[in-house]
């Protein structure tokens, strides 16, 4: 089993790729949405005016990448393990918003990020046991 799940088909790698792809897509979507904010205000509530930005299309491509890699990940992993692991997104998005977009992170938000990290560490233990069985 471990043999044909090695390399790029490793489900943990797929979860990592999926999660990073979501973070990248959020950055593109936010930048693209900001760039098109003044386009026809009467239609902006649909969210569709953001499609005028090429960055939004890049964001959509990364969303599709994350969806497909997610499907491959849950093919082999229990959902009750894979889904909590994918919540690393709640660390990646605020961190990349801080580093790339220059957004501020409050003390309370840092605490929340720390809590998610602790939770991920706990989830990683059953994950390690599962790995031995694979």
């Amino acid at each position: 089993m471990a043999n044909h799940l090695s390399g790029f088909r490793n489900p943990w790698l797929q979860i990592a790729v999926s999660t990073v792809a979501v973070a990248i897509s959020e950055l593109f979507l936010k930048t693209g949405a900001d760039a098109t904010i003044s386009l026809s205000p009467e239609w902006s509530w649909t969210g569709l005016t953001t499609l005028a930005s090429p960055l939004v299309w890049l964001g959509i491509i990364f969303t599709i990448v994350s969806f497909i890699t997610w499907l491959y990940a849950i093919k082999h992993l229990p959902l009750s393990v894979a889904f909590p692991a994918s919540q690393a997104i709640h660390i990646l998005v605020p961190l990349s918003s801080w580093l790339v977009l220059g957004e501020q992170i409050s003390a309370l938000r840092w605490c929340g990020i720390a809590l998610v990290l602790c939770g991920l560490a706990l989830v990683a233990r059953p994950v390690a046991e599962l790995e031995e069985k694979l």
Binding site: G112, V116, L117, A121
Partner: peptide, 19 residues
Amino acid sequence: PLIAGSVLITAGVVLVSIS
């Protein structure tokens, strides 16, 4: 550990979003 981890992650997500 899986249940405890999920509860912590949920608490963290709530905290991140309300702050």
